[in-house]
Design a protein around this nucleic acid. Structure first.
Lengths: 205, 205
DNA sequence: GCTCGGTGTCGAGCGATTGGACATACGGTA
DNA sequence: TACCGTATGTCCAATCGCTCGACACCGAGC
């Protein structure tokens, strides 16, 4: 590491490559079952050689995991935006976050692929029995969002709240509901007292 | 062209490099006189070697021109957004476009650098006596915007309208006004009949 | 058992970036 | 005027990442 500190273009290039690759994988996963999406097809879609794809992810397994985490990022971003708009009203923020999340899940082709797969794909374990990395990553991100909007919440509390919310959210990925509305209402009803106590009241906070 | 059609990542990398470089140049130009912004500083800020900067732009002159055009792009994007929101009401779109443009000009550090420079910088000529490329580029972009929102306008008319508006806009870059409001009102008053005739009426159109 | 298609690995080739060198031009100063 | 420090523009060898073709390996289907 004798290089100078700033490598912003190099970094950007690297992340651009990763993003291009994952975007290509995502596109193809939306078109057909994940097991029918070959490494060659992903590389071609991304306009890159197959070798470059292997250089970046090593093998199909890690790519699959990265793809799932990438999709998580999109959900997180959606939730983040919904929360940011309503930071002054925690219960309302909670409701909105649930709403946009469930809606996004219902419309997501990759989620659909996970849920409808016949067991020969490698997707389902990653959001269930092998979901530890996902849970860790997503809850860490969510905790950061909570901390940024409600800094008075203790770190441990934020982490646990995020962990719980992600676990609950994951459940709705694996076992979706047709109409998000009742779920949003119900979960809000359950979590509202807790949110009020920990995050603070509505307009008063 | 024996390669496959898609070279998306490669293309993206190239434009990313250019953008990174221009962004770095812009940042530094906002901090100090353009004259005092060295090629080495730009390269360093972009996280790239000086040679790469020269490979991309050849010399300082072309980089300076590209920087100006890049800044033009930002203004165009601002105007584009303002127009898009009011495509149904041409006079209103015109007013809004003028408003956001003059506001953006007033706040732009690079514009400020152009106007306050002591004559030893190479910026002023590019927006005045040497502004032909700028005028051509900006009016072409603006004409495209006009065409996309009001396709019934003849091409020649759109081009001339764009050319005139850009010339007028350039004037306010070089000779700014402290309060945009009167200018917006006045120019709107002048151009409104023309806009109504060529682009169409308000809610009725 | 054999073939086919996909995975994962390897190496030569190639283009782009790097870091260092250099000549040159300009501004400030004795 | 001569000198000095700095910035520009150019050159080159080394390096890095991507490409392309080749190969062994493995599981599924015939």
């Amino acid at each position: 590491m004798s290089r100078g500190a700033s490598t912003s273009f190099a970094d950007a290039t690297r992340s651009l490559l990763r993003r291009t690759l994952l975007e290509a994988a995502r596109d193809l996963a939306a078109e057909r079952p994940w097991r029918d999406v070959t490494m060659a097809a992903i590389a071609k879609r991304a306009g890159v050689s197959r070798q470059t794809l292997y250089n970046e992810f090593g093998a199909r397994g890690p790519l699959t995991e990265a793809l799932v985490l990438y999709e998580v990022d999109r959900f997180i971003a959606t939730v983040e935006a919904a929360v940011a708009e309503r930071a002054a009203d925690p219960p309302e923020a909670l409701t909105a976050a649930l709403d946009v999340f469930l809606t996004a899940v219902a419309e997501d082709p990759l989620v659909h692929a996970v849920v409808t797969e016949d067991g020969r794909d490698e997707l389902l374990p990653l959001v269930t029995s092998q979901a530890a990395p996902l849970l860790g990553y997503a809850s860490e991100r969510l905790a950061a969002i909570l901390r940024s909007h409600w800094p008075h919440v203790p770190d441990g509390e934020a982490r646990f709240m995020a962990d719980t919310l992600v676990r609950l959210a994951l459940s709705y990925v694996v076992l979706p509901v047709s109409d998000p509305r009742p779920t949003v209402d119900g979960v809000t009803r359950i979590l509202r007292p807790y949110a009020l106590a920990v995050l603070g009241g509505g307009a008063g906070g």
